[in-house]
Structures are given as C-alpha cells and as structure tokens.
Design a protein around this nucleic acid. Sequence first.
RNA 1: GCUCGGGUGGCGAAAUGGCAUACGCACAUCACUUAAGAUGAUGCGCCGAAAGGCAUGCGGGUUCGACUCCCGCCCCGAGCACCA
Length: 789
Amino acid sequence: MGYDFGKIEKKWQKVWAKNKYKIWAAEAKKPHKAYVLDMFPYPSGEGLHVGHVEGYTASDIYARYLRMNGFNVLHPMGWDAFGLPAENYAIKTKTHPSLVVKKNVKNFTSQLRSLGFSYDWQREINTTDPEYYKWTQWIFLQLFKKGLAYEAEVPVNWCPTDKTVLSNEEITDGACERCGSQVERRNLKQWLLKITAYADRLLQDLEGLDWPERVKEMQRNWIGRSEGALIRFPLYCDRVCYGDIEVFTTRPDTLTGATYLVLAPEHPWIKNYASRIRNYEEVRKYAEKAKNRSDRERQENKEKTGVELKGVRAINPINKKEVPVWISDYVLTHYGTGAIMAVPQHDERDREFAEKFKLLIADEPLIPKDEVIAKVGGKKTVNYKLRDWIFSRQRYWGEPIPIIKCEKCGNVPVLEKDLPVKLPNVKNYEPTGKAESPLAGIEKWVNVKCPKCSAPAKRETNTMPQWAGSCWYYIAYLFVNKNLKLKIKNSVIKNFFKIFDYWLPVDMYVGGVEHAVLHLLYARFWHKFLYDIKVVSTKEPFMKLINQGLILGPDGQKMSKSRGNVANPDDLVKKFGADSLRLYEMFMGPLEDAKPWDSKGIVGMHRFLQRIHQLFAKNNFQFPISNFQTNSNDQNSKLEKSLHRTIKKVTEDIRSLRFNTAISAMMILVNAMEKIPNLKIDNCKLIIRLLFPFAPHLAQELWDKSGNKTLLDNERWPVWDEKLVTEDDFDLLIQVNGKLRAKTKVHKGIGEEQARALVLTNPDIKKWVEAKEIKKVIFVPDRLINFII
RNA sequence: GCUCGGGUGGCGAAAUGGCAUACGCACAUCACUUAAGAUGAUGCGCCGAAAGGCAUGCGGGUUCGACUCCCGCCCCGAGCACCA
C-alpha cells in the first residue's frame, strides 16, 4: 500500500523502453513541431551530476507538456565524447579512449534512463563514431574549399600539462581552462578557422535571439567590435624617413594630443630597422623579456614598463610635431596594428605611462573625427577583439583533419568519397609534447598518395578540437536514424534539406552558461557557414536559450570532490526515487538562478509524492463521480474550482518555465484535497495529468491503478474551464489613507456608491473614519476602496 | 575599472503598482509509540498585555497606495579587463 517508488519507477521505465523507446520517437509529419534540445554531455568517468539533472528535467517537463498538447516534439540525446578528459583518463588507466568512452556512455545512459527522461533514443549520436565524424570532416572540407580553413604560423597558447595548443576561448586568466596550468606562448604552424569573417554577422544577429542578456553580452564583449581609424605616422631617423607606422585609434578626434607613439615589443618595424635604433641592444632585451612574460604576469603587474627607441622620431600628421617612439608591453601585438598613438590627456593608460617616463601631456583642441581623418589621409576601419579560431590539437583523441600534405601540391583536401578519415587504432596515443600529434608516428597511416598528383604524400596529423563535433550535433539528430551512414553524394545532402527546414531552428535550448563564448559561438559560426553554402535555411541555430543556474553545495560553494560537498544523483534516486529528485530540483527556485543544495529539502518533495499516493490509495484509486451543483458551497464544488485554477496556473507556469511555482500550486491543491473526508471528484484524472511531466513514474502508476490502460504520453493536457476559474465574489480591501484596515466579501461588479455605503457601516472602519472629514475616495473596481481623511 | 544579474523570515523562496512573507525546509509543542523513527495536528517576521505600531540592503522621490516605478548610495554574485 505504501509508495514503493523503486518498484514503480523500474516498472514504467521498462514499459517505455519497448520498441526502442518508440513512444518518444519524433516523426517529421505533424504540422506543429517543437525541437527541445539539451546540451549533450561529455561522458566523463564521474557520471551525471545534479546540474545535468536540473537542465535535463526542465527540458523534459517542457517536452512532455508540448507532446500532450499535440506538438511533434524532437527531444534527442547524444555524446560529446572526443577530447582530453577521456584521453587523459585512458593514458592513466592504460585503456584505449574508445573503451573508456564506451564504458562511460553505458553508465550515463543508464543514469538518464533511471531519471525517466523522455528522449528519442533512436536518434542517439556519438561524436566519436566514424559515421558521425565523417560529416564533421565533410564540413571542414567545405570550410577549406571556401578559404575559411587555412594554415598559418601564429603565436599560440600551449598547455604544458595537456601538451597541446588551445584556442583563446579555452584560456581563462592565462591558464588552461581544463587543468589550470599556465599556458605558454609558442609560435607554431596551425590550422585556423576564419571566424573573424563572420564577426559582424555573429554580432548583429544576436539581436533577434531570445537568449539571456548576459550571454548575448558576453558574446558581444568577446567579439569586441570597435569603430575607429587607421592613421599613419612617418618615422624618421636622422632626418631620413624610414616608412610609416600605422596606428589604430577609436579617437581620431584627439590626434592633436598624441605626444608619443608606442609599439608592441613584437612590432616588425623594430627588427627591420634594428641598425637605425641607437639603443637596439636595450630594446631587444626588453622585447625578449616581454615575450617570456605570460599573460597573467602582464595582468598582475600593471606597472608600466617600456624603452624609448633612441634616435627614432615620428611626425604627428595633424600638426607636424616631432614625437618620441617607445616600445611597451601594454600595447598588444595582435590587436589593431600593434602600435598606438598615445594621448595622455585622454587615455588613462597613456597618462600613467607619460607620468612615469616624464613625457609631454599636451592640452589640445578636439577636432571632429571625420575632419581629422580627411586631413591626414586616415582610413575609417572596424576592429575586432575576436581572432581566428585555432583549430589544431596535438592529441590523439579527436577527428583527424582531412588534409593531405603534398610537397608539390601543398595542402590537398581528402576526396569526399574517401571520408571518413578514420582515427587509426593504435597502442601508443600519449601526446608527444612536440608540435605534432601521436598520429605522426604511425607511418602506415601517415604515408599516402596525393589525391591530385599521386606522388607520395603525408596526412595532416593534428586533430580537431573537442568543440568540432558539437558545432553541428543538433543537425546530426535530424538525419541520424536513417541517413548518417549514407555515402556522401550531393543528391544525398539535398535530400536532407527538407528535414532540416522542417526542424530548424531549435526552439528551446537548455544548458549551462559556461559555453557562452565557446560552443555557442562556434556553433553559430558553423551554422552561418552552412547557411551560406545552402545546407540550412535559417541564419541562427538556437532561437531560445535557457541557462539553468548552477547548483551549489550546501555550503554555498561550487560543488567539488575536494570540498566534499557534492550531491550524487544515483544515491538520491536510490533513496528517494527519480520523481522526488526531479521535483526537488525544480522546486529549489527559479530555473536560471544559482541555488545551494539542501540535503533536507528533497525530503519535503518525497513527502509530497507520498501524500499523493496515499490520497489515491486510501480511495482505492477511484473517486466516486458526483453530481453536485457547480457553484454550490459544497466542499467538493469548491475543490473543483481550485482544481481548475491550478490547471491554469500550472499551464501558464510551464509555458514560462516557472516550475517552482507550478509545483507549489499543485501542493496547495493536494493540501486542500486531503482536508476533504469524502472526495467526490472524477477530475482527479486531471491532477494526474498535471503531475505527469514533473513526476512521470508516479503519475503513470496512479493512472494505471485508476483503471486506465493508456500511456499518459498519449493523453491530452487538461484544459481549464474559464467559468470555474473566475469567482463571483471577491474580498474588497478597505483602506484608510492607503493602509489596509479591513476586508469584506462582496459580489463582483459592485459600484462605488454601493460599496461606500456598505463599507461605512462596517464597525472596523467606523472607528477610523468617524468624526473625520473624508477628503477623497479611491475606488478600484473589483479590488479595493481607499478613504483619504 | 566597465557590463550584466541580484539583495524579502532561521534557510530555499512567493508576490512585478493594490492583502508582504504563498509553497517547502528547519524549529517548537501535542497526539500515536515501551522508545526511536515515520506519520498526523497546531504554532512559527519583529516590538507590544492589548489597541496597535514597525519591517522587503540604505537614503530620497513619484503615487490615494511602492518589494514592485524613478534618482543617488552600499553590499553580494557572474562576466570582461592595458583591446588604444
């Protein structure tokens, strides 16, 4: 008779699993589609954490709600399984990464199933499946063919622990985002993707997205657009001109106040004209030191340093005045032109530098920007902080970059028909620590014929970064169950278009905010590229984005093993059941807020479910159908009204993802039901349906026990009766000078005069207003009356 | 420093111009019990004997009426940060 959640949950999970979870299969047939997407997990050895459960429960509730409202819902799940964690773990345990992934996926799958998430498992994907990464490689080839994937020698961030290059997006405060090591600067030949070509579109199209403002703001900052001008300053050594130095400035109007120039230590002019610089040795030493200074060191010690280029003078083009030229590491080589005009009067950093080195701080007239630009022959321009995406990784566990290096033909793309370029199965996949991946050592794999000239050639041995597979996985779900394994042909790709048109864009995307300038930026970039080559027909992949808030430990700190404040979903499911865990995580507070975990809180949710079960069990899962008059004062009649108000509230709350208040509304209803000795409502069926998206196992069990043979997934969402939601009476609030003094129940639609007469006889009010002059009366129909005395 | 959030009981929170503190946790008392646990009932912002007064970070303003709108400040969180 008790609430045996363990048995109930296993029982229904088994029923749902029939025919490969066909019950949740999405078919591109019905008119109204809804694509409800979770950020797919990295299948780590740690397993699912409560943060996953939060986002996945929210999207599951939403998906179930839409399904019951007749939508054709696509709610898929898959595995983002390439990358460092699996590989590092594999090295540590001497197991092949593919086996590690296999094992972890198995664990994640059973965890997700134990929580009752309604995924379309027929569409499960895995980024490490060759049939999947065949398409990742195909997209890379398209980028290459359009000149958007290119090789160049660039200064890169090198993580000495993970022994690979990282992208700028993967660095936080000069440290590897993953392992925390200080990154080193190295100059290496790398593959890059030209994300900068999309900078403006990535920025502009943010406007139309229903995304959290802070995520949009982070992307805006990251792209960092600034409008300004390029201005040339001629450089002289001993009255001989040695070319121009071009500076970028957003304030050409302050040119008159530019009293010196500063070049980045790496600026090429310095090496090119070394012999003209009198103190070159000193300059070289400074540049050398700056190069070795990590980004973090530069940030921590903001004390300005620098060296003047002796014997070098520049001419300010607006007033022809001679100004000195310095180098300093506060000027960055990779932004703008790597050189600035310093205006100490206007710029805090320039002022600090000028004060330290006793340089001229000149007063100046401001001249309109356009006028200055025209006068000195400057050029209006736009600069971005965003830099091209460094796409090579010197590691084994990633998609091979499908390029063949031929001495005669250069970089030659692998033929599409030869995709996928499979990752060879090797024994030794430890990183080399050099600028090449472990694949370089596998001669059998590396040595191939050039597809163009058939001469002996070598494969590119770098692999793609972890983010590659997740750049398009939401598209992979759309054709995975039928077509992923097909040979690549144009006709095949064309066949996909109709499916893409139907499902895209994603209607609701739920995931953590940590991907704001990583996955979400990269995926938008690839999507826009796929739009340009006419694979997809929408400009943006994700219309609506929801970031679930971080779940903190009970101590208010971020959950971590070392702090010992981690809540483990498996333990909680075992102890309280999946339904209790789902409900608790949704009840904790607003979905998007960070919230501390309360180990006692889940008890309350468990009790709530237990009470519902008890309520039904007590009535043998049957409530007699009554023929009471609606609008009578009978308890059951009142309850019916509460029920309809609850339906309305829960419906509206699910639509706006306010699950915490939806749950409290259901609790209020159940509390009321418990107080009625002979429940006489047939409408308990409606309550079960309301509960279903939140606690699907218990709801289905009650539905079954009440004599229904159907699955709730196929039932309709309840509709409230507007007549029952509105009341005939209301509590008229009686205020004196804006303070509430009494209230009284009256009929709706009562007029001001009538209300006034009625209220003034009220003894509670009499004492406040008698012997006082009523100056004014404010009457708000169907709400309140306020006497000003 | 800049940008974006936020500040309400012992705790998680609700109310977005009209009944502040719904719902849940914790706590207290009682019932049941040999006991513990579970369960149920009742209570639970502060001051006050009561009438009543005071409370939504602080100070002002708008309004008949402000947690809610406006101005200034303080504090907490997140992101960015020598980006010219």
